[in-house]
Every structure is written in C-alpha cells, then in structure tokens.
C-alpha cells in the first residue's frame, strides 16, 4: 500500500550537502501500525514529510496505493493528501477561529461532498473520539488531550487510506498521552493503517512494527506483535 524504494533526499545549502535520507526503503501494508523512531537529525521528520507528500525527494521510488507519486503536480499531490492521508501533528494544528465541527470539516471542504454527507462524517468521527457533544466549542476551550482527539477526528473524517502521526503525544502529559495512544490502537483495530513517528520508545512498543532510523537509513525492524504482523504480511 505504501512502498518506498531507495528514497534519497539531499538538503543543499551554499556550502554543505546533508543527506537527510539515503536509500531509504520501507513497505507498509494495509492494517499495519508502524512506529518510526530515531534520534534527532536521523531523518525521521524528512521521512514523514515525504510519506505525507509534503515534500519532494531526489531519487528513488514512492508508490502510494499502487500509484507512483514522483511525477505528480501540486494539484494531484493535494488531492492525494486530501483523500488518502490523515495527518495528526504534535501541536495539533487546529485552526483557533473555527469550532470543532468546522475544524473537522476542513479537509472535507476540499472534496465535492454534499452538505449532509459532510455533516454525517463529521459527527461520526467526533463520536469516535468521544467529543460529539462538544461540537460547537472552540479548540481553546479544550484540554491538550481533547484537542489531539479533535485532530484525530479530523484525520479520520476524510476516510483516509492511512493515518500519518507526527509525535502525536509529544505535547501531552503521560495520562493524556496514554488515552490518545489507546484511541489510536482502537482505530487501528477497526482496520485503519497508522504510521507514527515518535521518539518515545515505550509508545513505539505499542505498535505492530517498530522501525528505527539512523543517518537517513532504516537500521532495525522489530515486530512487536508478531502474531498480527504475520497475518498481515
């Protein structure tokens, strides 16, 4: 479903070339819950940006849902992001002016959906994260954990192929972090693929696969829950 083959990404300044990713290869299958860890500067953020189609790469092949993304233009990339990927960020990135309903609505607005259908999806995904009763609240009226749940609802509302989470618990205390992780696990149980970048090893343990990145390359893969991984392999 998500296949990266020998992806290379180089950042150039006038004086220095930095290889953020070197011959990076990874395959994620449907239903997987993959954790990506690595020290700071290892290239995990670059991986996330490329996987999320937020950044281009210099060499290699990236196939998403059977489609090579290398030569797509901005509009096609936008459409892919909108339809296939659900983003979850460390700092939530909710729009402060909009209430919960409108925040979850944001990705749906860039699709041709009827008003009724949008409403149904928004209400359903807020229901999944347990915030259906606070639809008219503004983000600032919620706790950090609740805000992240809204962000997850926003990611889910578009019915994406997979969720791409970037340090989803990074800004949360351990109790809230735990509940967000449980929510992600629940979502994964219902069949949604999740790719999560984190530096927290204990959380990485809760994923099915744990990939460690160092110097732009995959150094180690562990199957945390082998029985499931085998089924999906």
């Amino acid at each position: 479903m998500l296949v990266m083959n020998n992806i290379t990404k180089v950042f150039r300044t006038e004086t220095v070339e930095t290889h953020a990713l070197k011959q990076f290869s990874l395959t994620v299958n449907e239903g997987d819950f993959v954790a990506v860890t690595g020290p700071s500067g290892s290239g995990k953020t670059t991986f996330l940006n490329i996987a999320g189609l937020l950044e281009s790469f210099d060499d290699g092949e990236y196939t998403l849902d059977g489609r090579s993304v290398k030569h797509l233009n901005d509009k096609q990339l936008s459409q892919l992001r909108n339809e296939k990927i659900g983003f979850i960020f460390q700092s939530f990135n909710l729009i402060p002016d909009l209430n919960l309903f409108d925040n979850v609505d944001v990705p749906l607005r860039y699709r041709k959906l009827s008003k009724a259908e949008r409403k149904e999806r928004i209400e359903h995904s807020l229901d999944v994260v347990g915030l259906a009763n606070r639809m008219r609240h503004l983000p600032s009226q919620l706790s950090g954990g609740q805000q992240q749940r809204v962000a997850i609802a926003r990611a889910l509302a578009g019915n994406p192929l997979f969720l791409l989470a970037d340090e989803p618990t990074g800004n949360l205390d351990s109790k809230m972090a735990d509940s967000v992780m449980s929510l992600l696990e629940d979502i994964n149980q219902t069949g949604t693929t999740i790719v999560m970048v984190t530096h927290d090893l204990s959380q990485a343990e809760r994923a099915h696969r744990h990939i460690q990145v160092l110097d732009g390359q995959v150094t180690e893969q562990q199957l945390s829950k082998p029985e499931l991984a085998t089924v999906n392999a």
């Binding site: 901005d74 459409q79 992001r81 909108n82 729009i95 860039y110 699709r111």
Partner: peptide, 16 residues
C-alpha cells in the same frame, strides 16, 4: 501561516 500549512497538508491546492 499555521492555518495555511495545515490546509495544504489536508489537501487544499494553492489556488484554493
């Protein structure tokens, strides 16, 4: 800029 980046991430085109 935060909002714009978010909208781009969730699939808004530049034109939009």
């Amino acid at each position: 800029t935060g909002e714009i980046a978010l909208r781009r991430a969730v699939g808004a085109t530049r034109m939009q």
